[in-house]
Design a protein around this nucleic acid. Sequence first.
DNA 1: TTGTAAGCGTTATCAT
DNA 2: ATGATAACGCTTACAA
Lengths: 325, 325
Amino acid sequence: MATINDVARLAGVSKATVSRVINNSAKVNEETRAKVLYAIEKLGFRPQFSAKALAHSKKQFRIAISLSKRMELIKDSNDEIGQFYGIILKEIKGMATIYGINVKEILLESPEKGYDGYILIGGDVTKEILNNYKIFKKPIILLDHYILGEKIDSISPDSFTGAFYAVNYLIKKGMKHIVHIHGPLNSYGFKSRYNGYTEAMISAGLTPVYYEYDDINNNIDIVLKKIIETEIPEAIFASNDMTAIRIMDELKKYNIKIPDDISIIGFDDIPRAKKYKPSLTTVKVFKQEMGNMAFKRLYELMLNENTHPVRISLYTEFVKRKSTR
Amino acid sequence: MATINDVARLAGVSKATVSRVINNSAKVNEETRAKVLYAIEKLGFRPQFSAKALAHSKKQFRIAISLSKRMELIKDSNDEIGQFYGIILKEIKGMATIYGINVKEILLESPEKGYDGYILIGGDVTKEILNNYKIFKKPIILLDHYILGEKIDSISPDSFTGAFYAVNYLIKKGMKHIVHIHGPLNSYGFKSRYNGYTEAMISAGLTPVYYEYDDINNNIDIVLKKIIETEIPEAIFASNDMTAIRIMDELKKYNIKIPDDISIIGFDDIPRAKKYKPSLTTVKVFKQEMGNMAFKRLYELMLNENTHPVRISLYTEFVKRKSTR
DNA sequence: TTGTAAGCGTTATCAT
DNA sequence: ATGATAACGCTTACAA
């Protein structure tokens, strides 16, 4: 277990010098550098991240969190943002405080230079937007999103598995006519839930039925009308809890009983899901943990640790409540 | 940025006591505990992982790495294990040395109690085997594997995307008749590559053609014969480099020219891929980084940090060499 | 250009 | 039951 001290001793220099060599943080005589490099090689030394991080802990980093225009729009009409991204945001800011790091919220569509790292939130990030951040040459995290082909660190819930098991729950209850109402599929999360639903249906020999719902126009009444006009399905699996709740609101107008006439499942487990009558069966997304991991990962990257980009999926949890049989 | 010192000061105790409260590591008077808890709450204190890890760095952990019987079997007939898992293993052991942690290799099928953490390697881990490890109640990492429905930390390459882009490369070259030779699909990695291939083919309007290859019986000659008997495809995408190399060996016997008559793509980028004539076009899996991440994640878990289980996928990289047009 | 030494936030040993 | 203090491995003023 070679430490910087061992290297220093073998190379016959001080550990400060070793540190300088490792980090290229100051001029070092070529001969000295060679000696140090040799010792590092010889001992198989690799700096320990914890020690590095600790020593850095008073360093003043600045990070930016980017939220899209669309979120700002929706924010006014309902509390979707607060119930989901709000929790994530709070965690990130909390972690930042602990680590003594400055956080600024900026508009996703207007990238601002000058931060040590960026967390881009939600499914509105496109390749084009991303490119405008890449040019800053600073670490970037996609939170609750992923873009195929982009080697950018990404943190998201395991939507596929979550959806798969939720729909399977309905199937095991003997239901066959299960429809999926989903948000825009350019959002990776929605797309994965869509895929999870599809996979569950197909492998059970059932026919998937999809309806798209646009949360900006909030056209759930129209969508639902269309669904009901043909036949009331046994269950609806919605892309997220907000949508599920709106569906239930609408269903009440038609005097359709939940869960007796129809079962509803959402996704996210926002606080409201539990309070609503009937309480909403859903797939819990670990929002706080997502925020935490996003922060930690960004912190690692800012300290140049483990820089190979990764995609992190957090396991979800099926939560049975009153909206399903 | 509250530290343990701030908490101690506010609670009017020493930081040693605060530490005892946080970790439940020793008896603490109920009143004192209450004061400390209050201070923690008030200040929003959360211990900093780096500091914790550093302080723990002399603690003697013991971890086990489990390799399957099948790997032992294959190991004799070729160097597949060394070329792929060998690199991963080496990295894990290297990290362990740095962290002063003891590593023992054990047989996957014979779980041994008494370690502080386990890394289970490869696609041979079944739910049943996993259960025998779970009862130890110690952190477990699945390396290069994932089991649907099991909430166990998992590290693997992003095989789907890797395969998708590799096959797309061939498609863009104008090829239409591309077959996939894959290993056992209970291995998550093989399954994902299979899915990536399928997705690429289907979305290009092409028909996927699959052949399974069993690396224990090493029946590549039979498989290849079957393929050629009908028609020589324009390209073969193999589940991994070892298989691709065997295919090329076999192809030479038929005097079929690579890449003129047929293009070959593998997966993994094992050292041999580069040396082989013709050098093998492949998808690079970051083996060392995988080992590194597996170790780090296990270490976190052993220190009770960030315990929510996650799936980590490492981005891959397409490497164009001479075996493709 | 290099070395000395303080300091980062925890844990753990040893007193009390 | 609690406190004082050394130690963990590294970075970074400040000195030389």
